[in-house]
């Protein structure tokens, strides 16, 4: 099979849906067979995966950490829709300062960005795969 460049679009929340877990498993399988994951985009409820304050029980999978690990190992970009994130309380230091908030919670390795990054990804990748709730 020819190697493909993939973009993953994750729209379902962790724990409330299987979207981030299914996408993680898909990403690992794709990377293992030689495909390239150009970007992972988080939209709608999917943005809540970027909450650096989530603490699932020790004996359960920590999806945020798993994604951070995968991204670091394979240089995968974790792009989070800024409008969807701010609406749901996922915010980085820069946006927190802009909105006069004292806290911020965007997990390390994730970047707040615009929908243009999803559009750019869809336009340039061989395939875009969406994981809905």
């Amino acid at each position: 099979m020819t190697d493909k460049t993939l973009v993953l679009n994750i729209c379902g929340a962790p724990y409330a849906s299987l979207a981030p877990l299914s996408a993680l498993r898909f990403a690992k399988a794709a990377l293992a067979t030689g495909h390239k994951i150009q970007r992972v985009f988080f939209y709608q409820e999917g943005v809540t995966l970027a909450n650096g304050l989530s603490c699932p029980p020790q004996d359960e999978i920590n999806l945020t950490k798993e994604w951070q690990k995968l991204a670091a190992e394979h240089q995968v970009e974790l792009a989070v829709c800024v409008a969807a994130a701010l609406k749901r309380g996922i915010i980085d230091a820069k946006e927190a300062a802009r909105y006069g908030l004292e806290q911020h919670n965007l997990a390390e390795g994730f970047v707040l960005t615009g929908l243009g990054q999803l559009v750019d990804g869809m336009a340039n990748a061989d395939r875009t795969v969406t994981f809905n709730s």
């Binding site: 939209y43 709608q44 615009g114 929908l115 243009g116 999803l118 559009v119 750019d120 869809m122 336009a123």
Partner: peptide, 19 residues
């Protein structure tokens, strides 16, 4: 929910990228 709004947001951005 916000679904339709988020779909429309994406449609508008997509079009500004001449897609």
């Amino acid at each position: 929910a916000s679904l339709a709004k988020e779909g429309l947001d994406l449609s508008l951005v997509n079009s500004t990228f001449e897609q």
